[in-house]
Design a protein around this nucleic acid. Sequence first.
DNA 1: AGAGGTTCTCGGGCGC
DNA 2: TGCGCCCGAGAACCTC
Length: 275
Amino acid sequence: MPELPEVETVRKTLKKLVSNKQIENITVHWAKMIKNPVEVEQFIDALKGETIEDVGRRGKFLIIYTTTFALVSHLRMEGKYGLFPKEEPYDKHTHVIFHFTDGSELRYRDVRKFGTMHLYKKGEEFQKPPLIDLGPEPFSEDFTKEYLTNKLKKTNRKIKPALLDQKVFVGLGNIYVDEALFRSGIHPERIANSLSEEELTLLHQEIVKTLAEAVKKGGSTIRSYVNSQGEIGMFQLELYAYGRKGEECKKCGTPLEKTTVGGRGTHFCPKCQKL
DNA sequence: AGAGGTTCTCGGGCGC
DNA sequence: TGCGCCCGAGAACCTC
């Protein structure tokens, strides 16, 4: 579900909802999603009494900062956070509940149970998995055209899987990678090290622009994404490629095609994106 | 029935 | 041969 624009939107909404709330207790209904510490009891005990100070983001990971800890949370395909009064019943897909001292609850709900949580002492989170090997943020000054060029010229992979690799840089997922490649006129199966200077310049620019526009619109809601306040995104209305199989290309009118690249459903225009 | 917005693990292939 | 890397396939789970 969530790529950088969706996670960033969740971050902003979640921060407003839970800042300064004190955790009285935690209920975990699906222990497997707690990856660190290994023992769920330790996870719960550590967070009891802690107050939430901030909510950050690294790539597609949320980082909930408390007085002494950093809780690194990945939503994977369907994870969602929401704030509820404790009286409100929860359903079978609610796996973790943070009970606050004010009677409200932060609930993590995840139909597919793919989401993960790692708890570390503040300051240690970037030296440990899952954040340790991540590439630069696309909005940072480290993510230059030269950096991207250097990474891509060293690999024989197809461009789409290379751009999805969070070690190269973070933030793109299946929606926005198809969008960035469409906007750049680059076929998703082109070999990464075969791109020309002009193509690399355009691709770098379109990656940053596409993600920035999507953040502005609150992300894309394709099937189930909502932010922490239950609001949908609006960027799905601006998509050129993703989910538009058989529909006319917005640039040239040719029907868009869908294939599989690197195991992922892939949308492209056969005329604008030549192999 | 199979695909779905993600990423981790595993093992084969290749080069030193 | 052995080790390390790169990379693709499969797995984790549930709904429609």
